[in-house]
Amino acid sequence: MDVQTLFEALIRENTGMLMAYIRAGIRDEHAADDVYQETVLAAWKRLDDYDTQKPLGPWLRGIASKVMLAHHRKSARLACPLDEGVIAWLNDRFAAIHNLQGDTFDEKIATLRECIDALPDTYKHPVRMRYTEQKALAEVQSTLDLAAETLRKRLTRAKLRLAECLERKLGIRKASA
């Protein structure tokens, strides 16, 4: 197996976690894709710096955090808050997810699925329709017969409940934010 094929296999294993990390920091799908591309390219160029005794995920997230901060400085469109404090906050959470059982992001994120299953139906249905079934907001709204504002608030509350559940399972106290 040549180095490039090995690199691709390692990145494939880490892409889910890396994309989640970038999306959480950047919150713009276009920009997140750009940051991902730049991160993988930078990782390839700096492959000699990588300590093979350590896991690849944190090293990739370290590169991604620098690319994200640079993008955030450059583009006025990315109005979400992003600085070293936010990066540290995200690093804590993604490190905790990284330490969960399983090899792939999909296996590690089973904990979040448990949290979704535990949600009351009022919150579970909109989350599943919006994210698992990937329905447009308008479609979720009409299927559940909800006003747009009600749906928006319900999704926000559902996500905050999920955050609370996941933080509890990861052993992270909310106050540590």
């Binding site: 994309m19 999306r23 979400c80 955050a163």
Partner: peptide
């Protein structure tokens, strides 16, 4: 926290 969960759900 909402953005964090949003990113996990999308991914």
């Amino acid at each position: 926290r909402e953005a964090w969960i949003d990113s996990l759900l999308i991914t």
